[in-house]
């Protein structure tokens, strides 16, 4: 069972803080983010380049828990098994998303059959194969997706986020 589903088991009506959510993800322990840059006076915030994992860590269609750009911002890496826009890696099929619902911040869970992220709070659905597009839901933005890079060793780095993360007015706090 993926970490995301475990989040639901924790109890849908429990309003967890982001930090607690990230701590619950076992995989995050393997990832050591560099000190995130503080927001500077420029149009886009300065994102840290954080190693989130290695291509070898990913199994097809099994979410790997990560956090980006800091421990309080839970997310996942997914190897979808088919090339998608924004996908990286040898097959162009690796993507990463925030797992905080952009509507009200509930932890999303992954439906491996549909390859969607689902919100237990208010039933929103986001399509991991379509750039996190909200298939149906209440959020006024699509699911924030990571800008990823894979180096020669297969290490996967996140270097940006394309929408504002829930619960913060700057993606880099």
């Amino acid at each position: 069972m993926s970490r995301c589903s475990k989040m639901v088991d924790v109890g849908r009506r429990q309003f967890l803080r982001g930090g607690a959510l990230a701590a619950a993800g076992a995989a995050t322990a393997t990832v050591l983010p560099v000190q995130p840059a503080k927001a500077a006076g420029m149009a886009m915030v300065d994102y840290p380049a954080n190693r989130l994992g290695n291509v070898a860590d990913l199994k097809p269609n099994e979410p790997l828990d990560v956090a980006y750009p800091d421990d309080d911002a839970p997310g996942v890496l997914l190897k979808l098994g088919k090339a998608v826009e924004g996908g990286v890696g040898p097959e162009g099929d690796i993507v990463g998303f925030s797992t905080m619902c952009p509507h009200q911040g509930f932890p999303l869970s992954y439906n491996a059959e549909r390859r969607t992220m689902n919100c237990p709070g208010h039933y929103s659905v986001f399509d991991c194969e379509a750039g996190g597009q909200q298939t149906w839901g209440h959020a006024t933005q699509n699911l924030p997706q990571y800008t990823l890079r894979v180096d020669d060793k297969g290490d996967i780095y996140a270097e940006g986020v394309d929408e504002l993360l829930y619960g913060r007015l700057s993606n880099v706090l």
Partner: peptide, 18 residues
């Protein structure tokens, strides 16, 4: 303190559409 991640269902957040 807005330098911290806010919790789910917070009243202290707004999205770009707001």
């Amino acid at each position: 303190d807005l330098s911290q991640q806010q919790s789910a269902q917070t009243g202290a957040w707004y999205s770009p559409s707001m």
